[in-house]
Design a protein around this nucleic acid. Structure first.
Length: 397
DNA sequence: TCTGGGGTCCTAGGACCC
DNA sequence: TCTGGGGTCCTAGGACCC
């Protein structure tokens, strides 16, 4: 989708159409999540703080994101894609890969599919999207980037070389600012140059990734579509506070809330984890994390919390805290293993009862009193949200 | 009205084992 | 008259993505 969150907002509120708008979170400290094409002309970028954006674009209108609208639209979009092929990977909340190798002839070719999907989305939701067609997803992503907004581009195998020859390496999916700087320092600026660079040189400099880089420069990509949701590697939550925290009690209350959110999501999707990671960010943005490995797996709120606190006990905080994060990793599926101790069985029963209440009446309806004062309004949804699996968070089914 | 939140993968050093 | 080679797991940090 083109400027997905912003387009949805402009569609649902006609007064916003044709104007520079930016979708933001409701928290005190928030950034631009998506900006309309009208705002892009002024140089407003994703990740910018509001002050900076307003300075660049004085008429900019801030709109607090509405997660339900975006997730609902996302799910409806999946239905459209599935009319053309079962091979659909929901890559993020506004992006999907469709493998139409086996089905395109039924619909008049890939271009016809792209155009039909574009029309159908425009008709149903009033929003624009861009389709990229190519022999692999690296080039399909590139094609859609080139064709944005409201476009359709087909990079045929025989055209890949000429498209890539003069393209800056940074334009490729997987090459960010760091790699592009390092490549630049080696005299490699374009994909053409990257594709021709000696494999040994890239390997010495970047290890295994160096070989991937060369392949990318040549437009080669063998990544298959992830049609079926894969088991997650980690489940985590983090939060930037409106005001930096310095009191230990306030920090612990936030850690309990984050541990509860993590545990609840793990329980909902049937995962247990063996590593707990605590992330801390200071006001100067220095950020670090520490993790601990548990004796066994868990998804119990207080076991996650206790381990996070034990990590905190090993840290001498040198300043107040801007952000805290709690994450559970080394995940396994919860096979309902018997719990050894009566205390654990009791806690499990308690958590099941709490989860049942919250499933029925909404998140945070039944919580621990120690973080009662910490319930913040929901943050704007991560664009990496997926319509199924554990990334499906914070929104009612 | 200074800088969000959700992830994945890779690296490199150290502990530990046989 | 100096100290191998194979491996696993753990940890912290960095790069990338939406």
């Amino acid at each position: 989708m083109d400027a997905f969150f912003a387009s949805v907002e402009q569609q649902s509120n006609p007064k916003l159409r044709g104007k520079p708008i930016a979708v933001i979170g409701s928290a005190g400290r928030t950034v631009i999540t998506t900006r309309s094409y009208e705002a892009r002309k002024y140089g407003v970028k994703t990740g910018m703080n509001l002050y900076e954006a307003k300075k660049l674009c004085p008429p900019l209108i801030f709109v607090i994101g509405n997660n339900e609208k975006y997730t609902h639209t996302c799910r409806e979009l999946q239905k459209i894609y599935l009319r053309f092929t079962p091979e659909v990977e929901a890559y993020s909340i506004d992006e999907a890969f469709l493998d139409v190798t086996a089905s395109h002839h039924l619909f008049g070719g890939p271009e016809a599919i792209g155009n039909t999907i574009k029309k159908e989305i425009k008709k149903q939701f009033g929003i624009n999207c861009t389709a990229g067609i190519a022999p692999n997803i690296l080039l399909a992503k590139l094609a859609s980037d080139i064709a944005k907004p409201d476009g359709l581009k087909w990079i045929r195998p025989e055209d890949a070389g000429s498209v890539l020859e003069c393209l800056p390496v940074k334009e490729l999916w997987g090459i960010g600012s760091r790699f592009s700087e390092k490549l630049d320092a080696m005299g490699i600026k374009t994909c053409g140059e990257l594709g021709r660079a000696p494999a040994s040189l890239l390997r010495n400099k970047f290890g295994i990734i160096g070989e991937h880089l060369k392949a990318m420069g040549m437009g080669i990509c063998n990544r298959p579509l992830h049609v079926h949701e894969e088991d997650p590697k980690s489940i985590g939550h983090s939060m930037t506070f409106d005001k930096n925290l310095s009191q230990r009690s306030a920090i612990e209350a936030e850690m309990l809330k984050l541990s509860d959110m993590v545990g609840r999501r793990a329980r909902r999707y049937g995962f247990i984890g063996r590593k707990v990671t605590l992330t801390v960010r200071y006001p100067d943005f220095e950020t670090f994390s520490k993790q601990t490995t548990l004796a066994g797996h868990t998804n119990h709120t207080h076991e996650i919390y206790r381990n996070a606190v034990s990590i905190l006990d090993t840290i001498i905080l040198k300043n107040s805290v801007r952000l805290l994060g709690v994450s559970l990793s080394s995940l396994a599926r919860d096979q309902g293993q018997a719990l050894l101790f009566a205390e654990q069985r009791k806690e499990k029963a308690l958590l099941q009862a709490i989860d049942a209440v919250n499933d029925r009446h909404g998140d945070f309806k039944l919580i621990w009193a120690s973080y009662l004062r910490n319930i913040a309004p929901p943050r704007v949804i991560s664009p990496a949200w997926k319509p199924s699996g554990v990334r499906h968070i914070g929104v009612k089914n």
